[in-house]
Design a protein around this nucleic acid. Structure first.
Lengths: 138, 138
DNA sequence: CCTTGACCTTCCCATGGTGGGAAGGTCCAT
DNA sequence: ATGGACCTTCCCACCATGGGAAGGTCAAGG
């Protein structure tokens, strides 16, 4: 079978790129990707190039980039005269955001771990978790 | 001033609890809190008890609990015959979710760190970050 | 007493990505 | 020609939050 790209339908592009058909249409609707070509029956037709781009988007999503960031990354990707500085700036900013989010979640987890550790978890009602939520950490 | 609770309006409750007026109305609309009493002029009136509950919610949100979880925590909080086991189960499940999310974000951050580290970040177009998104990690 | 301004009310809209599903059209194999 | 797998568009929902419009209430000060 013509593996890569399949028959060029959205379903084949979805399978080949790892981006759901639903999301491909959404990306098109918000202008992240160019409107796909259409067949006689008004079906979207995806080329290898399109699928390559979708894979790019998929990987960027997997790294946690938002669609706005991906839009800029795609522009830079297509621009052979880009300064890598610009790419790095986007990556660094995203990395900083990730690290901040991680720190926040870790703070929550640490608190929760402490409280849960002190909770007997038995039939009795006394519970440091509820106590903390009730009174704030005293 | 009558510090705690202020004049009982939603603004005072918001200031006293750290939950925005907007969110208080929202919590009421989705049934997380009981509909507040109303004054002659149809203003919501918040008691100390209400504000206490809002603070509980605020702290639970700060620990990353979702509204559905908070709903269950509130029920347990109000139930003096609760088994602390039930509270702990909710906390443990949430902790596991937090830890999983942290691991995911850390994986993203690690990949991104490696790529960004290898990127010159200068005028030249060559960029391992785009290369990775283009080809997958080769 | 009446104005002013701060606050309240409800209602709608947007965010960000994702999925679900309905109603209808296309395409291919039997 | 029929059935089923796929496509199309369109609307709805999620979760928690904020913005803002249009209109009502209340208290202080002139």
């Amino acid at each position: 079978m013509a593996q890569p790209g399949g028959d060029g339908t959205i379903g084949a592009a979805a399978a080949a790129s790892g981006v759901s058909a639903k999301m491909i249409r959404y990306y098109e609707s918000v202008g992240l990707i160019r409107p796909a070509a259409r067949s006689d029956g008004n079906y979207r037709r995806f080329t290898e190039r399109d699928i390559h781009e979708l894979r790019f988007i998929r990987r960027a999503r997997d790294l946690g980039f938002g669609l706005a960031e991906i839009d800029r990354l795609l522009s830079l990707w297509r621009d052979r005269t880009r300064p890598s500085r610009d790419v790095k700036a986007i990556a660094d900013a995203h990395l900083a955001a990730l690290e901040q989010r991680i720190a926040e979640l870790q703070a929550m987890a640490a608190t929760l771990r402490t409280l849960a550790h002190c909770c007997a978890g038995d039939d009795r009602p006394d519970c440091p978790i509820l106590d903390d939520l009730d009174r704030g950490q005293p």
